[in-house]
């Protein structure tokens, strides 16, 4: 079936199988492999992307369901070559280990900070409650997001 999408500010029109998952459309059709598949059941958030401005788990959606939507993936979350404040903060504090969760966490945290000016630690933990990090015990990541929140946009 035909679908039309805008991904990272570029229009895409194409034919997809109705059963194609959104995450596979992004990874395989568009080559945007920064969006990961971790759990396949919507538990881990590695596949998080922004769909019409809100973060969703792209492994639980058909590409067909996203027809007509605007999608931002990790590759498009910061404008240009740079990093957004969440990415910068994680980079500076070296809060990551294996990094597999990073794309999803960056997207969920970026969206959260856009809507919450002065979050406290428990707000940040709640905001990340759809994303699993298996390496760090979350603390370094939570701290990095809190630090990012203190930066001016």
């Amino acid at each position: 079936m035909k679908i039309k999408l805008n991904v990272n500010s570029e229009d895409y029109t194409g034919d997809v199988e109705p059963r194609l998952l959104l995450v596979d459309f992004l990874r395989d059709t568009l080559g945007l492999t920064g969006t990961h598949v971790g759990c396949e059941t919507g538990s881990c958030g590695s596949c998080t992307v922004l769909l019409d401005g809100r973060p969703v788990k792209s492994c639980l959606m058909l590409a067909a369901q996203a027809d007509g939507s605007r999608i931002i993936t990790i590759e498009g979350i910061s404008k240009g070559e740079g990093m957004n404040r969440v990415q910068k903060s994680i980079s500076e504090s070296k809060a990551l280990q294996c990094g597999f969760c990073a794309s999803g966490i960056v997207i969920a945290a970026t969206w959260f900070l856009e809507r919450n000016e002065n979050p406290n630690e428990s707000d940040v933990r709640e905001a990340l409650s759809g994303n699993i990090c298996r390496c760090t015990g979350y603390q370094p990541i939570v701290d990095a997001v809190l630090n990012a929140s203190k930066e001016v946009k």
Binding site: E75, M83, Q87, I90, L96, G99, A102, V106
Partner: peptide, 11 residues
């Protein structure tokens, strides 16, 4: 770290 948080990892 920068590679991974920009989604440029190669798994």
């Amino acid at each position: 770290t920068d590679r991974l948080i920009k989604g440029h990892g190669k798994y």
